[in-house]
Design a protein around this nucleic acid. Structure first.
Lengths: 336, 336
DNA sequence: ATGAAAGCGCTAACAT
DNA sequence: ATGTTAGCGCTTTCAT
């Protein structure tokens, strides 16, 4: 292994000069900088990550904790992870992948051993058991999603409440008076995952304010469950003309079920969703939707973390405004 | 930060005793071990990862290079990654996530800086530009997939050739005489991704040997493309009764298209696939399939790597035998 | 503008 | 069975 002293000898300078030439933390004459850089290339020198971490107490590694449980749409997690890695690399950091299964002990481990400088935690629940730990850790973190008590933590997410509202407002503007929210699987609500709750809040609030009749229906991630919900809605809410779907897995089967039950989308029923744009675009009936901007959230999360690592203050809460794209699945309510 | 000398002082022993108590690399009297462990807990001591890496030249971190390109089924990648992380943790290792976009320079970087001890590379192509680098690196690696020239490398994957054969054999045994393979998007073949090619080889070889008429059809990952292929097959191969699908994204739309075109599955057409079990199970018509065992491949890859790190020899090639599960989508050919 | 040298926290000879 | 100590490779203070 070629080390900094090898480079120093080859360039005829001291190790510290090589170090400073690399970091730019003190002025180096143009001439010696050239010689040092030439030697580095000639010898193929790479600073040893562990040695550097030891000397600087910085590993330049971020931890990313991903969920892998029922009811979470996998491509969203993946896209998020990729965007975190890409953005982190742009700031000279690498990313250590942790699963949620490691629990609090896992977070403590990577933080206390100084394996990582900071942490990004996905899939935050309203009362997340990891919150006290994250508050007490000596390393900064960013949460994806908002817990019930976000004080003292840095959180970022799509503004799901606003997203729920935007869907209802869109439907109301098109003249719809009876709307339903088909949501995530029951376990997601039982777990009190924040984002699912917030959609419900926004949906309900906007419906109440606009004096729409509304109802909420959790739904398992299976075509059969989608079919069941569709049948139930037709039976119990015959006046229904607007549906908001917040469940990637059943968006397509649900629309299929409605059509098989004789309802045209958007002729008889307007459907809008909160889901990744790629999904909304790819369906047989392209769906008007609020984008789930996983890539942007990931990138912003890393940027927040890098700022915190640099000692800069960052806002505790970052809510990304919902962005709606109209596609073919919503239309003005047909007047009977 | 609490360090090993703090623990030593607190326990009234030397730092090396603490170190050895932790590693078990030399005998410690039961009594002092107790004292040391008590002190460790009392102080909440965690060895500094960087310091340890510097002293041992082992970071206990594995690199995982994931693809994120068109034509790759995301859940498979994710499941693989999770299984790698879980298995690695079982061997006291962590996982650094790299995207393929970092290229050879990225691999060289994490290897030469000693950030990682070893590498797992997914989505290997027949003539992968990273192969020479991986051969020359001073750190062990395991490839997921087989390049054209695997000599000197450790590779593991499902035996895709055998999988292609098994599908044809299954169909042949049911009396089918004209079969088609609906494969991955064209770009996957153009890129010469090994596994796609091998399915074609196995499919074709088995068909030729069994004297079945056969044809191969790449297919984009869109319902429209699936529909087009279905129509083309009916038009050009009216005698077709058996289809092998190797393309997760279009398995469901393709079956839908066949049925819309008036073909019952499995009454008129037997369909078998190479795909994750969860997908095959979840369809309206559960599909007879060869499992894509991402979890097992990930776990085995880590185990191979850990063995290599331990200085043990491992086989260059590991081919996982295909495992077929019969579900509702294949049946004996109806005799006209 | 550059060099010398003292750590960073841990492990593993080399003692005893 | 345990202690002493010399590094591991790098950064950064302190000199000059």
């Amino acid at each position: 292994m070629v080390k900094i002293t090898d480079v120093a000898r080859h360039a005829g300078v001291s190790p510290s000069t090589v170090s400073y030439a690399l970091s730019g933390k003190r002025p180096i004459s143009e001439e010696t900088r050239q010689r040092v850089e030439a030697s580095i290339r000639a010898l193929g020198y790479r600073p040893h990550a562990g040695a550097r971490a030891l000397a600087t107490s910085r590993s330049n590694v971020l931890a990313l904790v991903v969920p892998l449980r029922a009811g979470i749409h996998v491509p969203v997690v993946m896209q998020f992870a990729v965007s975190v890695v890409t953005t982190a690399r742009g700031h000279d950091h690498d990313v250590l992948l942790l699963t949620r299964e490691e629990g609090e002990e896992g977070l403590r481990r990577v933080a206390d051993t100084a394996l990582v400088d900071a942490l990004i935690v996905m899939d935050v629940q309203l009362a997340d058991p990891r919150l006290p730990l994250l508050r007490s850790l000596d390393r900064p973190s960013v949460l994806i999603g908002f817990p019930a008590e976000p004080a003292g933590l840095t959180c970022i997410d799509l503004d799901f409440k606003a997203a729920g509202e935007a869907c209802v407002d869109h439907l109301a503007r098109l003249g719809h008076r009876v709307v339903a929210l088909v949501g995530s699987p029951p376990e997601v609500y039982v777990r009190q995952t924040a984002f699912a709750q917030r959609v419900v809040q926004g949906f309900t609030a906007a419906a109440d304010q606009g004096r729409l009749a509304s109802s909420v229906h959790p739904c398992e991630a299976s075509p059969a469950a989608a079919r069941a919900v569709a049948e139930q809605l037709l039976r119990e809410q015959p006046a229904l003309t607007g549906v908001v779907v917040h469940n990637e897995a059943i968006l397509e089967p649900l629309i299929d079920a409605f059509e098989e039950l004789g309802l045209q989308v958007p002729g008889d029923l307007s459907v809008t969703a909160i889901c990744p744009d790629e999904l909304a675009e790819s369906l047989r009936v392209p769906v008007t939707s609020i984008a789930l901007p996983s890539g942007e959230v990931g990138a912003r999360a890393v940027e927040l973390l890098v700022k915190k690592l640099g000692g800069k203050a960052v806002p505790e809460a970052t809510l990304l405004a919902p962005r709606m794209t109209e596609r073919g699945s919503t239309a003005r309510r047909a007047v009977a």
